[in-house]
Structures are given as C-alpha cells and as structure tokens.
Amino acid sequence: MTPVFPADEYDRRLAALRATLKAQELDAVVVHTPENICYLSGHATPGYYTYQCLVVTAGGDVAVLTRQTETVNARATTHLERIVGFADSADPVQATADLLAELAPGATAVGLETRSWFLPPESYGRLSGLLESAGARVRPIDAALAAARLVKSPAEIEQIRAAARSTDAGMLAAAEAAVPGASERTVAAAAFQGMIASGSEYFGMEPFVASGPRAGTIHASWSDRVIGENEPVLLEMSATVGRYNAPLMHTVWTGELTGEAAEMAVACAAARDAALAHVVPGGSPAEAHAACRAAIAEAGLAHTYRKRSGYSVGIGFAPDWGEGHLLSLGETEEKRFARDMVVHVVPTLRIEGMAGIGLSATVLITEDGHEVLTSCPVGPGR
C-alpha cells in the first residue's frame, strides 16, 4: 500500500490549512474526522472506529496519533515522518494533549472540530479542558476544513473518475441481473462483484437493492425477495477508489410499469434533468432543488418527494459516501456551484409500500457547464 497522491499534493493542502491557521491566529489544529485526516495526510484505515487524530501546527509540524497497531497503516498511507502510537491501555485524549504540547509548546489558541462524530462530547470536553488548563483557547475549525475539501484538485478528479468507472461496472452488472425470478440478494452480489473486480476498495456505504413495494422505503437494501414481473427495481451504489466516491442511483424494470409507478418514472427523469440545468458554475444549489421539486409537482407527485435533491461527493468512509455537510441541493443552501466541484444529483420518488423510482447522476462542474460521470446503459425499461 502506498499513498494515493504524491507528497506535493498533500503539501499543498497542508500549506493552505496553515495559511488559514495564521489568518485565524491559531497555533495548531487537531483533526478527528476520518475524511479530513485522509484529505490532509492520506491516512486511511478501516480502524477509524477507534481514536485517531491529526495534529497540524502553524509552524509546520504535522503528526498522526493513532493506536500502536494502526501505525503500520499510517506509515503505508502517508508521507509523514511523525507517526505516534498509543497503547490500547493508554488514554488517547491525554496523549493528544501531550503531543500538542510537544509540537506547539506554549500554544495559546487551538482549533478543534465541534461537529465531528469521532470526537464525542466526553472526549471533546476532556481535550478542551486539558488544552485550556495549559493556556490555550479552543476554537472551532469545522468551516475551514469543509471549505478546503469542496473544490476538487485535478488529482482528486482522477480518483473520482476511476470510482465512477467502477460504479458504472457494478451498476451494469446489477441491472443485468435484476430480472423477474432473481432475488435481490443475487442482484446485490452482482453489484459487489462488478465494483470490486473493476477496482473498488471497501465502500463508504453498501449498495442498495429494493424491488417492488420495498423500493418505497428509503435506504432499503437487499433481501431474499424475488423480483416479479412489471415492477421497478431501485439500485443505488458507489464504488470507492483512493477513498473517493461517485454514486449512481438507477431504476430498471422488465415489462411495463403502470399507474403511479409509471408516472413517477417519467417525473423522476424530468426532475433530474431540471436540476442538472442549474448545476453550472455560479449556479444555485437551492434553485436546482427548487427546479427538481417543481418538475415533480407539475406531474402531480409532490407527495412522493420528501428530501434534498443532491449533495457534494468526494472522500468517504462508512457510514456515508457523500459530503452533504459540505454542500447540499436543498432550500437552505447558500453556497454556489463552482468549477471542479463534484455533486450527486439524485431525485427519488417513493410511495411507502408501493414503489420507488430513482434516477441520478454524479457530475463534475466544468468551466461552462457540467460533465456527467456516472451512467447505466441498461434500462430503465428493458
């Protein structure tokens, strides 16, 4: 295993963060979210369920702190010289404070993430207390970390393109397997095989396979249900390459849809296209969402749509492949689309206990529009 990118890619990211630290008069930052640690250092491990952090100082020092057994992963996935391990019997919060005191002695202001799932309240409180008792004010750094990841570099876009190719391979395999008489489990196995064989690592989230009435429930994944005639099979998945993701939702059916399911299929395609028309440099995610909802309402199906219309994608660890906290296609989003952002536009219409239809695209925002990165040549209707 080697780092995903050459050292100069990470050096550029760290230099930008240090400029932010100096602008905000912070002596150092301690990062706990796996995606942010990976973005800044390359460190990636399935063992992120235990304590780990990245310390970056305004003066130029950087170090990963992790379990001793995980230091092997850190050495393999980063270019960093400083990898610090703590014993399973040790207190990792105290180890963090000790490491910070060593790298940034006399620090008076330190940035911490306040919205990280991986720094729970008890740990945040103890770490803040230790830093403050040493004379350092604690300030949030979440917004700066989010802003750094939103626009992708050329090297990141290469990884996302590779993930998109693998997603497409998995989706094609699943779509071809989703025929009457096949079980959802068989379709899911085809998706796994297609993505893994074409280059995917472990996923940020498992594929979703739901047929007939089960597709009316959000995030319903595979079961032993056998696919019937004339019913939709909703598929959603994302391969992961270099920890970068490119999701695709697609719906296929054999035969002919009738009633509201047929109306939903037409409206969903129209909604996706309406949203995509706004996914251009300077465009508004909120307006893209409004256009998506308007197309669905025009079809008389507003009651089937109860969510945002998309989100940013990039680095992802389970339990999510998206970056919705960075940017979402929703009514309250104030950011604007910019070149080299990557977003998943994903309208999904559902009626509980009856059917679900979803048609999406992961797109790269270009200089004057966007490029669709994910697609499936099979369906929707066969």
Rank of each mutant, 00 (worst) to 15 (best):
V4W: 06
A7H: 11
T20E: 12
T20V: 15
Q24K: 13
E25M: 13
A28G: 01
T33I: 10
T33L: 12
P34S: 04
E35Y: 07
Y39S: 05
G42P: 01
T50C: 13
Y51H: 11
L54S: 02
T69I: 14
E81R: 09
I83A: 04
F86P: 05
A87C: 12
T96H: 04
A97E: 02
D98I: 12
L103N: 06
L103G: 02
E132T: 15
E132Q: 14
R139D: 11
A144K: 07
R149D: 10
P154W: 08
P154F: 09
E158V: 14
E158R: 10
E158G: 13
I160H: 08
R161P: 05
A164T: 04
T167D: 02
A174F: 08
P180I: 04
E184I: 06
T186E: 13
T186W: 14
A188G: 08
A189C: 09
Q193I: 13
G199P: 06
G199W: 06
F208V: 10
S211E: 01
S211Y: 02
R225C: 14
V226D: 04
V226G: 03
R243N: 09
N245H: 10
A246R: 03
M249P: 10
H250F: 00
T251A: 07
L257P: 08
T258V: 15
A261N: 08
A261Q: 07
A262M: 09
M264L: 11
A265Q: 00
C268P: 09
C268I: 03
A274E: 03
A275W: 02
H278M: 10
P285T: 07
A286N: 01
A286D: 02
A291K: 01
I315P: 03
G316C: 04
A318E: 13
G322S: 15
E323N: 15
G330N: 13
K335L: 15
R336N: 07
R336E: 08
G356R: 01
G358N: 01
V363Y: 04
D368E: 13
G369D: 03
H370S: 00
